[in-house]
Nucleic acid binder design. Structure first.
Lengths: 195, 195
DNA sequence: TATTATAGCTAATGTTTATTAGCCTGTCAA
DNA sequence: TTGACAGGCTAATAAACATTAGCTATAATA
């Protein structure tokens, strides 16, 4: 892996842990295994790293959740819907890169408009839009009762998003949170799915 | 107002805006109208201010949302339930002190266990517990269909919490967010309330 | 009235931090 | 072989920062 990539990698880890203002250029350099001034051969300055990171975060997010291909084929039963939903959450909750990106965003969301916007997409609109499409499709297939897909997507994803952010903050409750999520998803399906 | 109180007040504003690490003791002093060294007549150091603030945040939170008296009398109709719910959200979203406390917590939630815990209570468990009690009571009065009050409370409050945090981040969408919240609350009531 | 505590101030200190200047070495193309 | 460049290094710099020392004036207290 190139030094430049190692820098962004370690910077993301540190920014997620201690925030941008709580991280020094020297700390980043040390983790990479170089001296701080060498870092300026790859980036113009500290803020340049931050901008590279937000670009990377956006790109990775797009890659993971953006494409319609991510939806894959529509679940054909209640149990399949539940399984894929839970599996998706588990991935989101445990993948180290996504976890870091989420903590990074939560910490820096107030830095400027762009950060705010990406944070909203990342933890609110993105996943909701995805489920809106899935639920819409499954409504057409008669697996969901007729209702507003947007509202249903919100009611499914919002509790999950909140619990995931709790697990970022208090990882020791992960198991309990996973249970809550499963219970919630099952209840949601009982209420809004047919049969 | 005492100088000590003015210090915590201005510190909260600045910490909410720029974070703890992004705020200098000098900035706080300037807003208060004193010089930085004078601040040490009231607090042992910067971290001492932080701790005073988290105490204050917890106390205010308890005051606003903690007591059972906050629940007041149970709503006696669907429309009353909706009205009080929306009114509560509007207060939460717009009260300047609560808004600052929330931004402060979101920014500093990873600082230590205590911050994490208070953040979870503040934006997750606290409000859910309150609505769990309300919904439980209204179930007994026949206004809600029989169901798990905890799950219903989650499904009501989680989307609201997420939208409120969006409005902290992107206040220009406040109106749209308020609309979404009202739509969501009405849909929730249509599904889970009787008649 | 004499004294003491409070709460402000200026000046200073030591540390941390981001960044720059300038040097050295290994790699690769001309 | 020469020359240029990439990417590392050390040393230095200037600014920001938290904090301390010590002075002073005012207000409360004895």
């Amino acid at each position: 892996m190139s030094t430049k990539d190692r820098i962004t990698e370690e910077a993301l880890t540190l920014f997620a842990q201690n925030g941008y203002d709580g991280t020094s250029v020297e700390q980043i350099a040390e983790k990479v295994g170089i001296k701080a001034p060498s870092l300026y051969k790859h980036f113009k300055g500290k803020e340049d790293i931050l901008n590279a990171l937000i670009d990377m975060t956006e790109a990775r997010y797009e890659e993971f959740f953006g494409s319609d291909r991510r939806i894959g084929k529509l679940p054909e039963s209640k149990e399949e819907f539940i399984q894929t939903a839970i599996q998706r959450v588990s991935f989101t909750m445990n993948d180290p890169m996504i976890l870091k990106m989420r903590k990074f965003l939560v910490r820096e969301q107030f830095r400027n408009e762009r950060f705010a916007e990406i944070t909203t997409k990342h933890q609110l609109n993105g996943i909701r839009e995805m489920y809106k499409k899935i639920i819409e499709g499954m409504m057409n297939n008669g697996l969901f009762k007729e209702d507003d897909p947007e509202l249903l997507a919100t009611e499914l994803t919002a509790p999950v998003a909140l619990w995931v952010s709790q697990s970022d903050r208090q990882p020791r409750y992960k198991d309990e949170i996973a249970e809550n999520i499963e219970k919630h998803v099952r209840h949601f399906c009982d209420v809004y799915m047919t049969a």
